[in-house]
Nucleic acid binder design. Structure first.
Lengths: 216, 216
DNA sequence: TAGATTGTTAATCGATTAACAATC
DNA sequence: TAGATTGTTAATCGATTAACAATC
């Protein structure tokens, strides 16, 4: 299974979203140009990205939407669903537990854990919430290999260690902590600071560059 | 004010985090090499990125930590705090309202809004929650120009339009919707799908490539 | 057939890394 | 002074865009 450039992977969900939308309108086929218009990605870029999925179109016609959806979903492995554990049932954790789209993206949270015992024993959106004492036992018993961390920053590294010790091979990290883990472990960070940095700077540039000269 | 490459901007908060940490240990100066080790970024990359902030170091010594912190914060405009509005007080919205780090990153949520009237009139973490009926009035009156959208996907575009009509110039968008707005509006998306796509594929590659041949 | 769209190869662009002179 | 680190220029690398032959 060849590796696909990260930037291509990040664009694939955008295409997928567009394809779902177009499909709903009743259209059966679509061209790279059309996808390009809807996603603001260069036409040639779309063609190259789609090529990575292995899908083959027909000249003059384009691609069958269903074929494309299938190819992309397959490529991301979003058509079969992996079980995962979530640790940290704060607001962010709850938000993820309630995010129903997740199952359409190949991920299902089958259990949540929290250090504070108050939440323990209850259910949220059908997902059971356990105390951390149950964590390692359930993790190794259920052979789950994907973990989501939505704890406070202080707890993140420790939780990550526990996960890896008990068979997790991939971690979706929502804390700002840079996790130190064996290189073979797959870590994806949701980096809000990076995003905010871009926003802040762009705003600063805009305000600075459009402000009257004499104010500076 | 020159524009800085996006990829550089996204790395700056990482450096900043490392600098805070190092400062706590009592160290006063730091070299690019040291930052590189802590952040897993190439040494030369760090030097180039720091050059964008305009900071100047001294050969053989490095940089004073305080100077660097200052330069980066200034660069991101994180030392003066901008007010912003948040719309959509679901779990994700609440998570952000409780995220105290935000004010250390130049952003303060001074009011939150929600379409559901239940939440209206109360406070969360000291932030007042209003109904949407108050939105445009307060927005234009308080001259807020940054908006955060944490609504359900369906509402995102409409909320964005309202924001822009009432003076918002930058939107931090936590929904998966691609907002259609005038080009001069600054939009930063927190794109969970993109992140999940990378994670999913890497897991698929790993499982496929390490699985016994005869299972495939 | 003619024209549009595909897939692919070549050119360009930007970002990363390497090399090196300047200097404390 | 010698050595380490800076800032910057040059080389490399990878990703994006342009060009074009193949084909339905």
């Amino acid at each position: 299974m060849d590796s696909i450039p990260i930037l291509t992977l990040k664009r694939l969900p955008k295409y997928l979203e567009t394809l779902y939308q177009l499909k709903k309108t009743g259209i059966r086929t679509v061209t790279a140009t059309k996808i390009a218009v809807f996603t603001d990605v260069h036409m040639t870029q779309v063609r190259k990205d789609l090529a990575y999925t292995g899908v083959v179109g027909t000249p003059k016609v384009g691609h069958r939407i269903d074929d494309l959806i299938n190819a992309i979903e397959q490529c991301l492995n979003w058509n079969d669903v992996s079980s995962c554990f979530l640790v940290g049932v704060g607001h962010l954790g709850k938000a993820l537990m309630g995010y129903s789209e997740l199952s359409r993206k190949g991920l299902r949270i089958i259990a949540a854990f929290d250090a504070k015992p108050e939440a323990t024993g209850s259910y949220l959106h059908g997902i059971p919430i356990y105390g951390m004492d149950k964590f390692t036992n359930l993790l190794s018993r259920l052979h789950v290999h994907i973990g989501i961390i939505t704890t406070p920053a202080e707890a993140a590294q420790e939780v990550a260690n526990l996960m890896v010790e008990n068979g997790v091979i991939a971690i979706w990290n929502f804390t700002p902590v840079k996790l130190e883990l064996p290189t073979e472990i797959i870590v994806e960070n949701i980096d809000m600071s990076a995003s905010l940095a871009v926003l802040s700077r762009r705003v600063a540039e805009k305000l600075y560059n459009t402000a009257p000269r004499d104010l500076i």
